[in-house]
């Protein structure tokens, strides 16, 4: 039993991100409202960002990678121990990923606005009805 608990608790960050991802995916697939789909998409992307960030963490009191006490001379005098700092690379990568996801969200919202102007709704069923009405039933 304790193994199970270890398995679940010890990797809680993974479970959290998987849960978030599934929520996002569910919203994207199951929701009929385009705005909700876009929200789902954002949750999905955020889940992956969280996953990267959580992999950077280290136990044992590692902190953000800013050299303490080191006003210019710190490095040469004491040296920096990698274990004292969390891994900065995933953070850097995720900065880029956040930019990407914001841009995606922007484009998606723009198109959603355009769709809304066109059909007067963001509900997929109603849009489909309107398209059918326009084209006389043909795809």
């Amino acid at each position: 039993m304790s193994e199970f608990i270890d398995f679940f608790v010890g990797k809680y960050n993974y479970w959290a991100f998987i849960l978030l991802m599934m929520i996002g995916l569910y919203a994207m697939i199951a929701k009929k409202n385009l705005a909700k789909k876009i929200i789902g998409m954002n949750i999905f992307q955020t889940a992956i960002i969280l996953f990267y960030i959580s992999t950077a963490a280290k136990g044992g009191g590692a902190s953000i990678p800013i050299i303490a006490h080191g006003h210019g001379h710190g490095l040469s005098e004491h040296g920096a121990r990698a274990a004292d700092y969390i891994n900065p690379l995933p953070h850097v990568l995720m900065l880029t990923a956040i930019v990407v996801s914001v841009a995606t969200l922007g484009v998606a919202l723009t198109l959603a606005v355009k769709v809304y102007h066109q059909y007067g709704t963001l509900e997929e069923d109603e849009i489909a009805d309107r398209i059918r009405a326009q084209t006389g039933g043909e795809p």
């Binding site: 789909k37 484009v107 198109l111 066109q118």
Partner: peptide, 9 residues
């Protein structure tokens, strides 16, 4: 636009 939006998702 609708096709584009679905493509984004």
């Amino acid at each position: 636009p609708l096709a584009g939006l679905n493509y984004i998702l």
